[in-house]
Amino acid sequence: MSVDAERPAPLMHAWRHPAPKGAAGRCIGARTDLPVDRRKAKRLAHRIRAIARREGLPRAVATSPLARCRDVGRWLRRFGFRHVVDAQLAELDFGRWDGRCWEAIDAAEIAAWSADLVGHAPGGGESVRVLLSRVRAVHARAPAALLVTHGGWLSAAVWLALGEAHAPTAATWPKAPGYGRRVILWRLQAPALHRPSDR
């Protein structure tokens, strides 16, 4: 998708971290610090560096403090980027669910979260309302930023970019982008001004 001349410059270029080790079938949030393969972290850092060079983006990146994001930032620092660790970029905190197999979590608890996606704090952790506030805070202070973050954080950012008038539900919550994928957010709380990218 080409950039429209009438659109403002993109505000955030955000990548989802590479696939972590040991995540399959588990609820992985802010309390579970899984590692990523060193080569995958380096490969994503190379892609980010190439895109920054090609698109004239700043040589500065902010990452979640979790290793699956932070390790990409460390590679970028070796490539001459300024790297900042930002706790606001962390994944949703799933409380006592975090790190557990989804099958081991009580179905009634999952149903309660699905019934109130925004206000309910899964596992006694963090609500989506709090996550949306964190995304807004990053957006407010980081125009034209390069970010490495998580699937849930990016889903929240995409929701805000869509500018929907009603609260998100389990059925309407955006699907997380794939591991290592980029999302360009043009403006939050505006309709359909984001684009996923495979670069």
Score class of each variant (00 low, 15 high):
Leu44Cys: 03
Arg96Gln: 04
Ala14Tyr: 14
His17Arg: 07
Arg136Ile: 10
Ile105His: 11
Tyr179Lys: 03
Val158Tyr: 04
Ala165Gly: 05
Ser64Lys: 13
Trp153Pro: 00
His150Pro: 00
Arg7Cys: 03
Arg129Glu: 04
Arg74Cys: 13
Thr172Glu: 00
Ala60Ser: 14
Ala23Phe: 14
Gly119Phe: 15
Leu76Ile: 13
Gly124Phe: 01
Arg136Thr: 06
Leu132Met: 15
Gly29Ala: 14
Met12Pro: 04
Arg70Ala: 03
Arg181Trp: 15
Gly22Phe: 14
Ala41Phe: 13
Gly180Lys: 05
Ala192Asn: 07
Thr169Lys: 00
Arg82Ile: 11
Asp116Gln: 08
Glu103Tyr: 12
Met1Gln: 10
Ala121Trp: 08
Arg82Leu: 12
Glu164Lys: 05
Phe94Glu: 01
Arg77His: 10
Ala90Thr: 13
Gly56Glu: 09
Ile51Val: 11
Ala170Asn: 10
Ala176Lys: 02
Ala170Val: 14
Gly123Asn: 06
Asp106Val: 10
Arg199Asn: 09
Leu162Asp: 09
Ser2Gly: 12
Trp75Ile: 03
Ala9Tyr: 10
Arg96Cys: 04
Trp186Pro: 09
Arg141Trp: 09
Arg195His: 04
His17Thr: 13
Gly125Trp: 08
Arg187Tyr: 07
Ala104Pro: 03
His83Cys: 02
Trp153Phe: 14
Ala52Lys: 01
Ala161Phe: 06
Ala45Lys: 00
Ser197Leu: 06
Ser197Arg: 03
Arg43Trp: 02
Arg187Gln: 09
Pro191Cys: 10
Leu185Phe: 08
Arg187Ser: 07
Asp33Arg: 12
Tyr179Val: 12
Ile28Ala: 01
Cys27Trp: 14
Val118Trp: 09
Arg39Asn: 04
Ala50Ile: 12
His83Ile: 08
Gln88Arg: 14
Gly99Phe: 05
Gly29Phe: 15
Asp198Cys: 03
Gly123Leu: 10
Gly22Glu: 07
Pro174Leu: 06
Trp159Ser: 01
Ser114Tyr: 05
His166Tyr: 08
Thr172Gln: 01
Ala104Phe: 08
Pro122Gln: 06
Ile184Val: 15
Asp116Lys: 05
Trp97Lys: 06
His46Gln: 09
Arg49Phe: 10
Arg182Ala: 00
Leu89Cys: 01
Asp98Ile: 14
Arg26Ser: 02
Asp86Leu: 02
Val61Met: 06
Val183Arg: 04
Gly99Ser: 01
Glu91Pro: 06
Met1Trp: 10
Gly95Thr: 09
Pro58Arg: 11
Leu76Glu: 08
Ala144Gln: 13
Thr149Ser: 02
Leu188Val: 09
Phe81Tyr: 11
Lys42Ile: 10
Ala24Val: 11
Ala67Thr: 13
His83Val: 05
Ala115Phe: 15
Ile51Glu: 12
Leu76Gln: 03
Trp102Pro: 01
Arg141Pro: 03
Cys101Gln: 05
His166Ile: 11
Asp86Met: 02
Leu117Pro: 12
Ala167Lys: 00
Gly163Gln: 14
Cys27Gly: 09
Val130Asp: 00
Ala90Lys: 02
Asp4Glu: 15
Arg129Gln: 04
Arg54Ala: 08
Ile105Cys: 07
Ala5Gln: 12
Pro196Met: 08
Ile110Leu: 11
Ala140Gln: 05
Val158Met: 13
Glu103Ile: 14
Glu109Cys: 04
Arg187Asp: 06
Gly178Leu: 14
Ala45Trp: 02
Ala9Ile: 09
Phe94Gln: 01
